[in-house]
C-alpha cells in the first residue's frame, strides 16, 4: 500500500511536469527553388515550421538559425554576419496547436560543406528544441577574376601616366 502511494505521487508529478512543459515540433526543409548545386554568391532559402504540440500556450518564443561548417578539417560554427541579415525570430506567442512558418534566406559566402539547424526556446522553459539538420555543399567560385582586374589595375594608371607624359612633352615644346 505504501509503495502504491509513492507510485501514485510519482505518476502525478510526472504528469504535471509533462503538462506544464512546452512541447515544440520543428521541421526544416530546403526551399524547392534552391539551386541544385549551390556555389558561392548564390542565395538559398530554408523553410521552417515550428508547431506548439503541447497543451499550454507558449509566450516569448525565440527561434534562431545556426550554421556549422563540416568540411573535413575545418569543422567550426560559422558567424552568420554577411551570410544572412535574418538570423532570428523573437517574441512570438504560439497557442496550443498553432504553427509558425518562417523562411530563412542565406547567401553563400564561402565554399565548403555546411549544416544548418533551427533552434527554439521560450521565456518560461529551459528546454531548447532543435530541428533536424540539413546539409549542403557550396562550390567554390572565383570572386575576383584576374582577367578583368589586371587590365584595369594596370591600364588606368598607365593611361593617366601617359596623359601626364604628353602634357609634359607639350609643355616643353610649346613656344610662340
Amino acid at each position: 500500500m505504501k509503495h502504491l502511494k509513492y507510485l501514485l505521487a510519482g505518476s502525478l508529478l510526472l504528469l504535471s511536469t509533462l503538462a506544464s512543459a512546452a512541447s515544440l515540433q520543428l521541421q526544416l526543409k530546403s526551399d524547392p527553388a534552391n539551386p541544385g548545386h549551390p556555389t558561392m554568391g548564390d542565395w538559398m532559402h530554408f523553410n521552417s515550421v515550428i508547431t506548439n504540440s503541447g497543451q499550454q500556450p507558449i509566450e516569448g518564443l525565440v527561434a534562431w538559425i545556426s550554421l556549422v561548417q563540416v568540411t573535413p578539417g575545418k569543422e567550426q560554427p560559422m558567424d552568420l554576419e554577411d551570410w544572412s541579415a535574418h538570423k532570428a525570430v523573437t517574441g512570438t506567442a504560439l497557442a496550443p496547436g498553432a504553427s509558425l512558418q518562417t523562411q530563412w534566406p542565406m547567401r553563400l559566402i564561402q565554399s565548403g560543406d555546411y549544416r544548418v539547424v533551427i533552434s527554439t526556446t521560450d521565456r518560461n522553459n529551459k528546454t531548447v528544441f532543435t530541428s533536424p539538420t540539413l546539409q549542403f555543399h557550396v562550390a567554390q567560385k572565383p570572386v575576383v577574376e584576374s582577367t578583368r582586374i589586371l587590365p584595369v589595375a594596370l591600364g588606368i594608371p598607365l593611361l593617366i601616366g601617359g596623359l601626364l607624359g604628353t602634357q609634359r612633352f607639350r609643355h616643353r615644346h610649346r613656344s610662340a
Binding site: M40, G41, D82, R107, I109, Q110, S111, Q140, P142, V143, V144, E145, S146, I149, L150, V152, A153, L154, I156, P157, I160
Partner: peptide
C-alpha cells in the same frame, strides 16, 4: 588610381582575400 589599383591587385594576389564573397 594607384591606390585603387593597389587594392585591386591585392585582391587577386592574396589568396584569403580572393576567397571573399563577391559582394564583400
Amino acid at each position: 588610381a594607384g591606390i585603387l589599383s593597389a587594392f585591386a591587385l591585392l585582391l587577386i594576389s592574396n589568396r584569403e582575400l580572393s576567397l571573399l564573397d563577391n559582394a564583400q
